[in-house]
Design a protein around this nucleic acid. Structure first.
Lengths: 220, 220
DNA sequence: ATAAAATTTTAGACTAGCCTAAATTTTATT
DNA sequence: AATAAAATTTAGGCTAGTCTAAAATTTTAT
């Protein structure tokens, strides 16, 4: 049996709120993320539980079952592949693709996904640096660190973002920080934790703590 | 205001049943094409009429308003562009793309369509030979003829199909008849109107009236 | 011209997904 | 441990889109 657009969205959101450890997700958190009311979430949880997609005990929060996890990862795979398509093939900016991919991710057809994957050359990461699950549903989160965890003097490579908001991505564009940029942490201001960084051995710029907290980087 | 998936489908189907002359479409015809019951069609017609998308008087059948026509053509444009993408870029067969395009055609975003169009090189026809409306909504149906209207001895070019059923398209594949093939009509059997045709000056084969009736061709 | 047949519409009902308001359960605070 | 606050669920209701059965209208055929 097929899952509806809405069901898929719930599963995807539960997956992302649940985090790496598969922690329980609360009704209120889901209400917030789905932009619906808690009462509506409860209705949907009952339904998803009946279908065997989540583990749900009243008042106790939910986790995905193995089956639900599978569905969620498929949706994530589709979302990220379509984002690659939109950026690499159609020329969208990385700040413009989220909403469109949000629709495309619910198009059914296994074959479509696999052909798209092949067409794109089996990309491992989407335009925001998020890893793309493989066809078997293996999703390995690379263990990047957040820029705030980097020591002064370290040179790291920019690998992804935690915040996907267009305004944040546009801010990075204006700062000349893109995926793959080498960032050298020059100093951190004691007072507000703002940092001065050098990008690709060239221009030096100041970034706020807010920005640092949302940059995923890798030691080299 | 946005139109729903279902509303878009009704408009698209009314457009196609209405034909070039914009003839009235009956409730039953719509029920058949939408695979719903006549009563459900009536409900939807009332709604579309209220939105100003169709001209509807009870018991009299419907036609599209200018506004409705616009929406229908946009959906058709999207459908056909996605079909080109699926065949040209992803490598699907022309018999495999209809259902997937049926989903993709409802993805909103004007920009997406225009970027897709550019990416595909502004194709004029889809993989079945159907014309693709331009961004302004101009849809010019080329005046192809059906193979049954061709005289014996004539050489024509295969330009499209009337029946889009996978089984028919697969049959053409097996016969070696593709878009652009040159077909010379050798003879027509008086009894059952089956025909013998030569393809691209090579192989000669017999085709039934059923096939002839569904082949669109052009004199050269 | 009119009765039978076919088509279409109305009436009433169902499901998915959402809502508000009220009730219940859990958690936090004293 | 008792109670206040917060979180969650239940109850009852709404809309979109569908259905069946019955009523109304149009078309067809005598």
């Amino acid at each position: 049996m097929q899952n509806s657009f809405t069901e898929e969205n719930y599963l995807k959101i539960i997956h992302s709120l649940s985090g790496r450890d598969g922690a329980e997700v609360s009704t209120n958190a889901l209400a917030e993320s789905t932009a619906t009311r808690a009462a509506s979430v409860t209705d949907m949880l009952r339904k998803l539980a009946e279908k065997g997609l989540i583990n749900y005990k009243k008042y106790q929060g939910v986790t995905l079952t193995e089956q639900g996890e599978k569905v969620a990862i498929k949706v994530i795979r589709k979302h990220r592949l379509w984002e690659v398509f939109l950026v690499e093939k159609l020329g969208f900016g990385w700040d413009e693709v989220h909403d469109i991919a949000e629709e495309l991710e619910h198009i059914p057809s296994e074959i479509l996904v696999e052909k798209l994957d092949t067409f794109l050359g089996h990309p491992r990461f989407d335009p925001h640096g998020d890893p793309i699950p493989d066809a078997k549903g293996n999703l390995t989160e690379p263990d990047y660190l957040v820029l705030t965890d980097v020591q002064i003097g370290e040179k790291v490579r920019m690998m992804g973002v935690l915040d996907h908001a267009p305004s944040f991505l546009q801010h990075l564009d204006r700062s000349g920080i893109t995926l793959g940029s080498v960032i050298e942490l020059k100093e951190v201001n004691d007072y507000d934790k703002s940092a001065s960084v050098q990008i690709n051995g060239g221009q030096t710029l100041f970034i706020s703590l807010e920005v640092s907290k949302n940059l995923l980087v890798q030691r080299r």
